[in-house]
């Protein structure tokens, strides 16, 4: 039957939508880590003053 011509796109669409959602979250999570790392670096640079006291 040509029935699968609607089933196959449906399941493919579901798979793509799920993969996109997971990938988006994954990317955001990595961006979060990068942001946190930058902040940590910023904090470290604040703790050790770059300019020696006069």
């Amino acid at each position: 039957m040509g029935d699968w011509s609607y089933v196959a796109p449906g399941y493919a669409l579901t798979a793509v939508a799920f993969a996109a959602a997971v990938l988006r979250l994954h990317r955001r999570t990595r961006a979060d880590r990068a942001a946190a790392a930058r902040l940590a670096a910023l904090r470290r640079s604040r703790r050790t003053p770059p300019v020696p006291p006069p």
Partner: peptide, 29 residues
């Protein structure tokens, strides 16, 4: 975070969070 002289201005939070990931520790200083 208090703004300090001598410290590179940090990107707005949206950029920090949304931009492509940078290697660990590749921040300003």
């Amino acid at each position: 975070a208090p703004v300090r002289r001598g410290v590179q201005p940090v990107a707005p939070v949206a950029d920090l969070v949304a931009t492509a990931p940078t290697p660990q520790g590749a921040g300003s200083h």
